[in-house]
Design a protein around this nucleic acid. Structure first.
Lengths: 342, 342
DNA sequence: GTGAAAGCGCTAACAG
DNA sequence: CTGTTAGCGCTTTCAC
């Protein structure tokens, strides 16, 4: 009845005791054999391993964690109910951590502080080694009080002198977008963006102004509104339907939805994109950028990179390194037909 | 120095021993006091609780799990790199489970069986009480071999006689969509949808045919292509640019992207929606349905409900109930201006 | 009603 | 090199 390797009937009640007994060694020896360390005759080690495999032994992490200081487990907390921004981050983080055998608890806290606290308490009970906080938007949030364990805020930030904040470089991204348009010879560039109370809006605006001023261009075309396609369309109406002022020859939009709305509105008016007006969006959200007519050039915040970095930093912090302050990771320009004729 | 409740310095090295000592009871008594059970004088119980709170005692779940059969932990495995379908499910599942003090490990396995196995092994090591498998698409997948612990496939299915599969009712949703159009008096209804090898495409097609035939209408207008807006536009070109056949007066689209593409293409041709042609999409993906012109009527698969149900069933299975087979949860029609004039 | 003691499954000294 | 032993932090009989 030799069990096939596939059929490792994972009997969940197989303990190291059983392995030891069947391998005819002491339980301590068996333990040593399973873990890499410890001086042991290769022969013994092999025998133990073989038996372990045969009877489908799987070490109990819970029992291990009771000894080692670590549970090899971290928590991630998000308030992004849609997952648009946090999912790519979480995904990359989880991948990075899984590589190191660290598992991730996921918690949704819908901006409800009580629920959040409840989640945190639960995670602390599970003895997580670290905590990652992420969000729907990158604005500052209340710090999370958790004693002693490392905390990282990704796409999110808080006043916590002991925590590390990892953010996309909004300002740099805006500079990238603006310089791309300037490099294309555009001189009347408008910035259509989201609500001004978003920090990201302010930073992107600043980048926009910086780039334009450096190029000797006026940067006074600034329109703030909701983050929607409709607003993109409305903003274009505002900019292009008044016959008076000279019209923009480029739009830098605060996100891809606005950019797409703008592109559609221009299309409706028979204004050619990119010939008459070039458009750059922000987020590089494929469902928007690739479906738009024409497909949109956009700024990618590299959320997965942010997630991976968070994973790496967290591992470092868990091993005792102290990391604090705020770091911004570079964004990237992705060029499509809304700025460059195919 | 009375610590404020907020400042519960969560010293992670406070054990039940400490509580017992300070409360001047035995460690066994302290344990009994913390947990609801056990006969104990109210006075003693109160004293213990008070001390525990004061010194910021937090029971170690890991140690508890070593005794109880349960770890109060489950795993969720997904291959949906974008999170479009799985995130709402995961979110609702997590919420439902968190209510019961069960934490969720999240694992991404990018269709890589080896990685998947690695994740599973890791989860088993952590002694998860149950496993939920979800996916980017609801098609059948290889079963996951995990000995003895409950498994639920949500928005995903597998040949596993011991597992429960929870799916949206694609066929029912299609019937809902079709009957809505029929009820509006439409008689030439086309179905523009995704690749035929998707089970969802086949089921929705079947629902479409069933509803139309029952109403005595012809159901031969069927176009299959990619899941994109572009395909929606192309399909409209196919249906409306040939001058020969009588044109459809309604479109039931396999997803919202196709529906939006179709709406745009009709708009380009000056065909009024919904007056000349009514459109129903599928997924009720707000970024699509609400940004489209006009906003799209759509079928909602109620993914959060699916996630909640999965959570409930999993808890039941963990408590020993046996649940198997496949269950489909109803979809809902959400009416917007693409079928009914505002 | 409360305390003592025996583990849950594993690791880490420390002997031999 | 291998076996023995003392716990990790907690629960749970079983006496008293």
């Amino acid at each position: 009845m030799s069990q096939d390797t596939q059929d490792k009937s994972p009997n969940r009640r197989v303990t190291i005791r059983d392995v030891a007994r069947l391998a005819e060694v002491s339980i301590g020896t068996a333990s040593k054999a399973m873990n890499a360390g410890g001086r042991l005759r290769q022969e013994t080690r092999d025998k133990v391993m073989r038996v372990a495999k045969e009877i489908g032994y799987r070490p109990n992490d819970l029992a291990q964690s009771l000894h080692r200081a670590r549970s090899r487990t971290v928590g991630i907390l998000t308030n992004d109910s849609f997952g648009r921004f946090s999912f790519p981050i979480i995904r990359a983080l989880e991948e990075r951590l899984a590589d190191q055998g660290v598992a991730v608890f996921m918690c949704n806290a819908t901006d409800d502080p009580a629920r959040e606290r409840q989640h945190i308490d639960q995670l602390l009970g599970k003895r997580i080694d670290g905590l990652v906080v992420t969000a729907r938007r990158s604005d500052r949030r209340p710090a999370i009080l958790v004693g002693g364990i490392p905390v990282i805020y990704v796409f999110s930030q808080a006043d916590d002198p002991d925590a590390l904040c990892l953010l996309p470089d909004d300002e740099g991204g805006a500079v990238l977008a603006s310089e791309h348009l300037i490099g294309l010879g555009r001189t009347r560039i408008a910035h259509i963006t989201g609500p001004e109370h978003f920090e990201a809006v302010q930073l992107r605006h600043r980048g926009f102004k910086r780039a334009l001023e450096r190029a000797g261009l006026k940067s006074d075309l600034f329109l703030s509104g909701p983050w929607s396609e409709e607003w993109g369309r409305d903003a274009v109406a505002k900019l292009f339907d008044g016959a008076d002022a000279p019209r923009p020859d480029a739009l830098f939009c605060g996100n891809d939805q606005i950019a797409r709305g703008a592109a559609e509105a221009l299309r409706d008016r028979g204004i050619a994109v990119p010939r008459d007006v070039a458009i750059v969006g922000f987020d590089n959200w494929l469902v928007m950028t690739e479906a738009a007519r024409p497909p949109l050039t956009s700024i990618d915040m590299n959320l997965p990179a942010l997630g991976r970095e968070a994973g790496e930093r967290l591992l470092a912090m868990i091993s005792g390194e102290r990391e604090t302050g705020t770091r911004r990771l570079p964004a990237t320009l992705v060029v499509r037909q809304s700025t460059v004729e195919s």
